[in-house]
Design a protein around this nucleic acid. Sequence first.
DNA 1: ACCTATAATGGTAACAAGTAACATCATAAG
DNA 2: CTTATGATGTTACTTGTTACCATTATAGGT
Lengths: 149, 149
Amino acid sequence: MEARIEKIKQQLQSQAYKLTPQRESTVRVLLEHEEAHLSAEDVYMLVKEKAPDIGLATVYRTLELLSELHVVEKLNFGDGVARYDLRNENHRHHHHHLICGKCNSVEEIMEDWLIELEERLENEYKFQVLDHRLDFHGICRKCRVEIQK
Amino acid sequence: MEARIEKIKQQLQSQAYKLTPQRESTVRVLLEHEEAHLSAEDVYMLVKEKAPDIGLATVYRTLELLSELHVVEKLNFGDGVARYDLRNENHRHHHHHLICGKCNSVEEIMEDWLIELEERLENEYKFQVLDHRLDFHGICRKCRVEIQK
DNA sequence: ACCTATAATGGTAACAAGTAACATCATAAG
DNA sequence: CTTATGATGTTACTTGTTACCATTATAGGT
């Protein structure tokens, strides 16, 4: 935990940004809720518990900053709210989502299946891939079992 | 053109919806701007040219309706605006996007590269895929040439 | 230590996309 | 020709996010 905070601190400082108490509280919330796909509002509520004086705008600014530094990934599942995920080592930016239309759960697939495709894009389309996003919409295992009952 | 309108009319009627003049104008705009990834506001402006009396809410309602009937596909590129694409035969729902971070252009790739992956999801994860979404973010050929200058 | 420039913050107003409410108009069935 | 229902246009509203601005914290230079 502390090691990861330290690392993020260095990432910030390398771009001349400071790890202020507010930013640290925000990062801690993200660390404590990995894989949770928190919205900005969610993060705000959680940070408020520890640092009640923080302002909503600061949370938005921090998330935006961390997003630019690629510390978090800003996701959008089409429901009108941006969600923010920490990018750790195992779980870089290359993962995919299984979004269930019944229960709205989001499962993550950690493998990166698109390496070959990205090479093809470079060669055939001359498109330089910086990032990608792959979401599958459908029905998850649990809901399929439910339906069969 | 007229044939496609007729087909959409039947799709609507099969669910007891009518192809009102406003809906027809909206569909015509979509037909005339295929591949354009229009936002609701874009559609509204374009429909206004032909049918100045149409209301914004009607356009939203129509796009929503067409989306439910799978006549159009509602897309979200993460910029906070929903975009609407007609689904024609060639161009079902399986296509991918190359989104350029410099010029914000969106190119489409018509091939479906994910058939094998969807089979793996069915088998290994027991996830029933109904739809998917694959976007690549990066720098397009044109902008790469610009940068080299 | 003391200025001073700059960064960061909190509160709030503003914004924009989308939705809900509601009165009016159109239409199809009896 | 009436009546129930569908569809529309206007407008007010909601919600996520950003812009603004006065205040506070911080780091360097003297």
